[in-house]
Amino acid sequence: MTGIDRLIHEPARLVLVSSLYVVDEADFVYLSNRTGFTSGNISSHMTKLEAAGYVEVAKTFVDKRPRTTYKLTKTGRKAFQQYRENVEGLLSAAE
């Protein structure tokens, strides 16, 4: 599958990246609610996405409670747009 970004193509990461693509930024609780994924699952996928430069992670305190916020970087947004185009191209070629 030439041109398909395997990092995004993994089903759980695809759900996480598309959830982040439609917002500016979101925290861990929001992503967990939207996707139904466990905390360990989200953490491990986000670590991979962060390492690739697709996601920015910020850890802050709000009302004395920790908040972990995730945001797609410009690279991450471009990668997702490219991924969509490639998949759409692949699917239309198969028709």
């Binding site: 917002v23 500016d24 930024e25 979101a26 925290d27 609610n33 409670r65 908040r67």
Partner: peptide
Amino acid sequence: EPRIGYVRWTP
């Protein structure tokens, strides 16, 4: 917000 999480929408 503590229940559904924090989200900032796109511009």
